[in-house]
């Protein structure tokens, strides 16, 4: 797959726009999925996913052909999603440390969610419920969790995509898992 994509990229760099269509076909579902899980909204996800492909096309000359194209494409998409989330996000962060305390974050001050009655849980589609919980994660945890558990990428790849040290990626995944545990244990 990667070899075909590499060949197509060379054609695109030479100026053949049609070759890019095949690249879009290969990655559209994964990029759309990534954006949807990050943004929790199909319409916005489509918008951002398309924007990611267009940006990748415009900047194709800056792509290092020795690297995996998917890594580069995911980085563009993730960054666009994070930008979008931050634009509409309130300016407090649940995971920010409460001033004057050590290791105490807003999470510890939010009462754990009371379990919903049995029938009510069943009336909501489980998928939507899970997506809602994913959407509640702060963006820096959301991106690592989505890349790890939905796109099923390795920690090394995630560290390349997010341009973060491996250690930071691990810490974020651990915190993301902790947050998900809190949110999902009663689902």
């Amino acid at each position: 797959m990667e070899t075909i994509v590499k060949h197509r990229i060379k054609q695109v760099i030479k100026g053949d726009q049609n070759a890019y269509g095949e690249i879009v076909e290969v990655y559209k579902d994964k990029v759309f999925q990534l954006c949807y899980r990050m943004l929790g909204n199909r319409h916005e996800a489509e918008d951002i996913a398309q924007e990611a492909f267009i940006r990748a096309y415009i900047n194709i000359n800056s792509f290092n052909q020795n690297l995996k194209f998917s890594t580069w494409l995911y980085r563009i998409a993730t960054n666009l999603c994070i930008d979008r989330i931050r634009k509409k996000k309130p300016d407090y962060f649940l995971d920010a440390e409460v001033p004057g305390t050590e290791g105490l974050t807003m999470y510890s001050q939010v009462p754990s969610e009371t379990p919903l009655p049995e029938d009510e849980v069943e009336s909501i589609e489980l998928q939507d419920a899970i997506q809602k919980e994913i959407s509640k994660l702060p963006d820096k945890y959301r991106s690592v969790i989505v890349l790890k558990y939905i796109e099923e990428l390795s920690l090394n790849e995630i560290s390349e995509i997010l341009d973060l040290p491996l250690g930071t990626v691990k810490t974020r995944i651990h915190r993301g898992r902790e947050a998900l545990r809190q949110q999902l244990r009663h689902v």
């Binding site: 879009v24 559209k28 489509e46 898992r177 999902l184 244990r185």
Partner: peptide
Amino acid sequence: NKSIALVQSTSHIQAPDDFT
């Protein structure tokens, strides 16, 4: 483990047909 399984269980959605 349960929360991870739940996240992974979200069905893989596809891009709209006219995406490309």
